[in-house]
Amino acid sequence: MKAGLRLAAPPAILGLAALLLWQGAVRLFRVPDYILPGPVAIAATLWRDGGTLFASLLVTLAVALAALAAAIIGGAGLAILFAQSKWLERALFPYAVVLQVTPVIAIAPLILIYVRSTEAALLICASIVAFFPVLASTTLGLNSADHNMLDLMALYRARRWQVLWYLRLPAALPHFLAGARIAGGLALIGAVVAEFAAGTAAGGSGLAWRILESSYRLDLPRMYAALFLLSLAGVVIFAMLSLVSWLLLHRWHDSAARREP
């Protein structure tokens, strides 16, 4: 409890001070809202417009979470497949890298043309962005099993699936979870970027569209309010994945174990 307070206090104090400073500066210099709204104006917008913005947030969040799920299943699945066949890994991995290094904002228009359903297109774009860290870190994890442990498995004539189940998968778990945590943030980014690319085609429902819409009207308080909700969503995703990671690892893995004082 006390440790939690000690951890939360510095960023809370700093944040509060920054907000006060911000509000004070906006007040003092009479900065108009269409240039830089103060935190109070943003909060007011959030309060007034909260219903619409929150509904939009849920739309974007749904895309991001679906993309994260697809990235986790696809990335981990492909990594397991790679672990079964070095040949397959060598053949496919370079293309995964190509997919990763090509900016999604440049692929999005193509995907939007080829895929009829906009929702599916958004999902594909966000998945492409989120998928690589899961694949790369899980692949690394599956290959990171200790040599002595592999010898141990060989000594007891473990079958292939037993080596995978009892050794490689648990050894890969910390790596996989680290990858998933990165993928969580990327999925949200991917969803927003794809929405931007889709523009009005996205049906004007997601949070990115709300930002675009507000920018056309020079409604900066609303842009900031939407931005705030987006980062809040990102933080929540990250926190959830960190919690899952802690639950799975804290009993045995050094990274998650509490250090004795």
């Binding site: 007891y156 037993q162 045995w252 893995h253």
Partner: peptide, 24 residues
């Protein structure tokens, strides 16, 4: 075989480690 390192699987308990050859 007893290796130079204990070579225990960190995600299994002591009992789980000892039982492993039997489970395999």
């Amino acid at each position: 075989f007893v290796f130079q390192e204990p070579t225990l699987l960190p995600w299994r308990t002591a009992r789980g480690n000892v039982a492993l050859p039997l489970i395999l």
